[in-house]
């Protein structure tokens, strides 16, 4: 009897500890930031968000994230296709390398791009000879975003291609469809859910990226200042309300994307 009672106490203790940890660590901070941003009333929140520099940084972030996502969707689909369909020496090495951007610290990624595109490198001096600069301008931010979000589309498309039934493709060929027609009518629709969900995850990560971008962006307010760096600047200059307002905007956007991806995946699983 005492034994049973003891074990019940134990399991009750475990349960409440885990639930408390979950609530304090995850739920409280996120609720806190929403409360903080709206604590001055909705008008103050709207003022903080529509403040010229804040709004420009959000628009810039969305624009550059869209560009990098489109590039990654194209490159990622190609890479996934090659990695799944072709057998060639070095394939497994390339496949392992895909995860590299997830494993590397973002500050290290920023430093790499800084060195590669800097004025002393051949890419930087080449661009200078052409009359443009990459580093501390928009292209450098896009490169940083592409690097950081590189694995998402590949990792989302690969399983779809592996699942694809070879007989469907063969049937299309047998019925006289050309290679390109088979690709666009049979294979691409099959990859589409993977491309879309991978691209959405990549987009939300690109919106949130800080470490890689802060080192290469130059952070000129209104021109190369992205939202996450803007938030950091507001914290540093002791304006938590402004930081919280832009955070809530970014956060809500990311949450919507994340939940849409989960919803789509769950429906597919059914």
């Amino acid at each position: 009897m005492t034994n049973m009672l003891q074990s019940r106490w134990w399991s009750w203790g475990f349960r409440s500890t885990v639930m408390l940890y979950f609530i304090i660590l995850i739920v409280c901070p996120i609720a806190g930031i929403y409360v903080q941003s709206l604590s001055g009333g909705f008008q103050a929140f709207a003022d903080n968000v529509t403040e010229a520099l804040a709004w420009k940084s959000v628009i810039l972030t969305v624009k550059l994230a869209v560009i990098s996502t489109i590039i990654n969707a194209a490159v990622g689909t190609l890479a996934a296709w090659v990695l799944v369909r072709y057998r060639f020496p070095g394939r497994s090495l390339l496949n392992s390398l895909v995860d590299l951007p997830f494993a590397l610290p973002t500050a290290v990624i920023g430093l790499m791009i800084l060195l590669l595109l800097g004025p002393r490198s051949w890419i930087g001096s080449g661009a200078e000879a052409l009359g443009t600069t990459i580093l501390f301008h928009e292209p450098a931010i896009v490169v940083a975003m592409i690097f950081v979000t590189f694995p998402f589309v590949i990792r989302a498309v690969q399983p779809m291609l592996e699942e694809l039934d070879a007989s469907e493709e063969e049937a299309a060929y047998t019925m006289g469809a050309s290679k390109s027609r088979t690709f666009f009518r049979v294979i691409l629709p099959c990859m589409m859910p993977g491309i879309v969900s991978g691209a959405m995850l990549a987009f939300s990560r690109a919106l949130a990226e800080f470490g890689a971008v802060v080192l290469v962006a130059g952070n000129i307010p209104g021109r190369t200042l992205v939202a996450s760096v803007y938030i950091f600047g507001e914290i540093e200059s002791d304006n938590p309300a402004g930081a919280a307002a832009v955070s809530v905007l970014l956060l809500t956007l990311s949450l919507l994307i994340l939940w849409t991806v989960n919803f789509v995946r769950r429906r597919r699983a059914r």
């Binding site: 409280c28 806190g32 930031i33 949130a208 800080f210 939202a227 914290i235 938590p240």
Partner: peptide, 15 residues
């Protein structure tokens, strides 16, 4: 996963 790391830090500073 959806929260920018900077925002994660801000949450803790605020709380």
């Amino acid at each position: 996963f959806a929260v920018s790391p900077v925002i994660g830090g801000l949450m803790i500073v605020l709380l």
